[in-house]
């Protein structure tokens, strides 16, 4: 996958809203292409997180361990993303992600995000704002559901 194709894929993701063309171009260089066969694990619950992923092709499922096995929390497809929480809190992965079908993912590591931050401070701010928006949106959704149950 060439850099231009990656750039076009990233431009579709809400994580990179408001980024300038040259910021997107550098991000496209910093994202590595990773390919997974169906059922292959991208990362496991409990591992230290060091990267976020944008789905370029295929689908992944997010699963959590239960008493008897695994429960699927969500299924994601292109151009959705996952793993962004670990870029903010540097905590352990809260769920396991595995490929549902043959999947092509774009991976941005902490180290490469640091390169981006050094080169594009404002662009980095926007990436962080966008991640905060995602987390904020999810928190609102959880609050709403909690209120309905109460």
């Amino acid at each position: 996958m060439d850099v231009q194709t990656k750039r076009e894929l990233l431009a579709e993701s809400p994580l990179f809203d408001n980024l300038l063309p040259n910021e997107l171009s550098m991000l496209a260089e910093l994202f590595a292409v990773r390919e997974f066969d169906g059922a292959a694990v991208v990362f496991n619950e409990g591992e230290v997180g060091d990267a976020l992923y944008v789905i370029a092709k295929g689908a992944v499922e997010i699963v959590r361990r239960t008493g008897t096995g695994f429960a699927t929390i969500a299924t994601l497809e292109a151009p959705q993303f996952f793993g962004e929480m670990s870029l903010i809190d540097k905590e352990y992965r809260s769920a396991t992600v595995r490929a549902k079908t043959k999947a092509v993912l774009l991976q941005l590591t902490n180290e490469n995000l640091h390169i981006f931050a050094k080169n594009f401070r404002n662009g980095f701010t926007w990436v962080v704002v966008n991640i905060a928006r995602v987390l904020s949106s999810r928190l609102r959704e959880v609050n709403k559901r909690l209120a309905e149950k109460l």
Binding site: M1, V3, K6, E29, L30, F31, A32, V33, T109, N112
Partner: peptide
């Protein structure tokens, strides 16, 4: 080279 480094180099 797209796989051997931390970034894709052209």
């Amino acid at each position: 080279e797209s796989r051997q480094f931390n970034i894709q180099v052209s």
